[in-house]
């Protein structure tokens, strides 16, 4: 087993070594070597659920046409490979290294055209419109992910994750591919510049200060209510007990 893994790593390493070492995100044109390596990795780690030809099975959806963006998102957030089937694939420790993820993505992309991993240019949100990003975020995202990107509950135990640890690339890929229960936001309905604006807004939430002090988790009035009972009122009751206590 270890030998196989090592051998595979060797193959991947060789393949990547031959390819230009350019940034995988900017170089979306995968080499044949990457596809081959990805295919091997796929058969080893993914085919038991997704099928030998990635056509999907009862347990897992087809990967034909999902594109490299979807593969990259699922693998680089650790959602795939799945540990146990459940309502939703949770984020967990990443199982593959960057090279392996690139290879797998290249393989998935080779099956049929689909959304591609965003390029560095796609992800350059520096010049995006922050206020527009906020408007798009509030129209399309807050209903599930909450006003501060803190996430929220969906039906039947599913949930929209917290966005505060998501990288710009993951956010972009998620909008593009609609992982799990998330709807797809195509480049026509949410243009790349709209997506950049959204990323800029999320980045702004992540980095902006909390003017008023402790944010209480940014989940709205529920935590405020808990705080006023547990923090405020308890402090005042303690003061009242002290006032009423007899002095020796």
């Amino acid at each position: 087993m270890l030998l196989i893994v090592l051998a595979m790593l060797g193959v991947v390493y060789a393949a990547v070594g031959q390819a230009t070492t350019a940034d995988a995100a900017t170089d979306t044109a995968a080499t044949q070597a990457q596809v081959t390596a990805g295919h091997k990795l796929f058969q080893e780690g993914c085919s038991s659920c997704h099928g030998l030809g990635a056509q999907g099975t009862q347990n897992a959806p087809t990967l034909i046409g999902v594109g490299s963006a979807a593969a990259d998102f699922q693998l680089s957030t650790g959602r795939m490979p799945l540990a146990v089937p459940g309502v939703q694939a949770p984020e967990k420790k990443i199982q593959y290294n960057d090279t392996q993820i690139a290879a797998l993505a290249a393989f998935v992309a080779s099956l049929s055209p689909g959304p591609q991993i965003p390029t560095a240019k796609d992800l350059d949100y520096a010049g995006a419109d922050l206020a527009l990003g906020g408007q798009i975020f509030r129209t399309n995202c807050t209903q599930c992910h909450n006003f501060a990107g803190a996430g929220g509950a969906l039906s039947q135990g599913a949930y929209a994750p917290n966005l505060m640890s998501a990288s710009p690339q993951e956010i972009y890929e998620a909008m593009l591919t609609g992982p799990e229960n998330m709807p797809v936001f195509s480049d026509q309905t949410l243009t790349p510049s709209d997506k950049q604006a959204v990323i800029k807004f999320i980045e702004n939430i992540r980095t902006e200060p909390n003017p008023g002090g402790w944010s209480l988790g940014s989940v709205g009035p529920v935590s405020e209510g808990l705080f006023v009972w547990i923090g405020g009122l308890l402090a005042l009751i303690a003061a009242a007990v002290w006032i009423g206590a007899k002095v020796r």
């Binding site: 129209t139 609609g178 709807p183 797809v184 936001f185 195509s186 026509q188 309905t189």
Partner: peptide, 13 residues
Amino acid sequence: VRPSDIPVGGIVS
């Protein structure tokens, strides 16, 4: 909006 703008699984307001 054109129909082709909305992929399967997509939603727009």
